[in-house]
């Protein structure tokens, strides 16, 4: 096991090696056909476990939005708090109990 002098950490952002997805009891699932790509869920995700991705290959609520980026949930980190579900203006995110 490695340590560092004075416990200084020189690997920035390395908690991303520690996945927190197992904390989840409910899983948010984005229904892209209802998603207007407003990114409010991305704004408010505390992990952050919602990534901004190119949207062309995702279903779309309105063809005009196809060039817009989409929110994509990274389940490795999503703790299932449900903020995205609660804040989504079009109710496009389902919240489904995780099967154990």
């Amino acid at each position: 096991m490695k340590i560092s002098r004075g416990a200084t950490i020189t690997e920035p952002g390395s908690t991303s090696l520690e996945e927190t997805g197992s904390w989840r009891t409910f899983r948010p699932v984005i229904r892209y056909e209802k998603c207007i790509r407003c990114m409010i869920c991305w704004n408010f995700c505390p992990e952050p476990a919602i990534e901004k991705k190119e949207g062309e290959n995702y279903p779309v609520a309105n063809p005009k939005l196809i060039k817009m980026p989409v929110p994509v949930i990274n389940y490795n980190f999503c703790k299932g708090c449900g903020i995205c579900v609660n804040e989504c203006p079009t109710k496009a995110i389902d919240f489904i109990r995780e099967e154990k």
Binding site: S14, T20, P46, K79, I83
Partner: peptide
């Protein structure tokens, strides 16, 4: 601010920080 931190689910602090 990277994910993998140990804030309680739904904590507002990381939203502020990010």
């Amino acid at each position: 601010f990277a994910p993998g931190h140990r804030a309680c689910a739904g904590c507002a602090a990381p939203i502020i920080v990010k």
